[in-house]
Design a binder for these strands. Sequence first.
DNA 1: ATGGCCACTCTAAGTGGA
Length: 253
Amino acid sequence: MKIATWNVNSLKVRLPHVLDWLAAEQPDVLCLQELKMEDSVFPLAEIQAAGYQAVFHGQKTYNGVAILSRHAAVDVIKDIPGFDDPQKRIIAATIDDVRVICGYFPNGQAVGSDKFAYKLDWLAALTEWVRDELRQHPRLVLTGDFNIAPEDRDAHPAWKDEIHVSAPERAAFVALELLGLTDAFRLFDQDDKAFSWWDYRMNAFERNFGLRIDHLLISDPLVAECRRCWTDTAPRKLERPSDHAPVLIELTK
DNA sequence: ATGGCCACTCTAAGTGGA
């Protein structure tokens, strides 16, 4: 089973890239973030024509998440239960025997800002909810755009004490791991300076000034089955790319 | 590196992203 995550930064603009990538990589599950569109205009027909089903939770201009899958997605949850939030950032579903939680974590803008406080509140609510989800679904993946680079090696050295790398954000990431989740990327040898996002400005991609902020955290039964985790930088090289690259895991079952 | 980009929006500049 192959499970992927990709912040597409507008599904309207990136739909051709997504369809090409589905055909090339043939993932069983693809989690998308930053759709930036309402459900009424979600391109369901095009995705179905590519051989995928979809559940989605969209929003105009900002946010929006979706799970595309070969097989049916059931027990769908949208938003963090009990957390009052107008921003559409969470969708969860069970596909085959794996619980998939797809999240577009808040950016936070700047350490100490109102948006930073929202990010930490959101992370705390997420953590308590995922604890419950894990009890019900031992085979679980929490994936998406976390907007957190968990360690120094996950950020270009120019990023210091800023948003995405601050101590409170990294502590929140560790709190998720302490639920019994493992950063699949670090199960395997990886290249140095392996990132998943690069700024559109300053030729950041060509110079590899990036961050690793898109993750797949997997529960212990899936750790035992995980044989590969990698970032596919090919879509970042296309004309008019998303600023994020897809990240994938491959499970033996 | 800190800007210079990109997507979006009551199609103008302004907001937000990371």
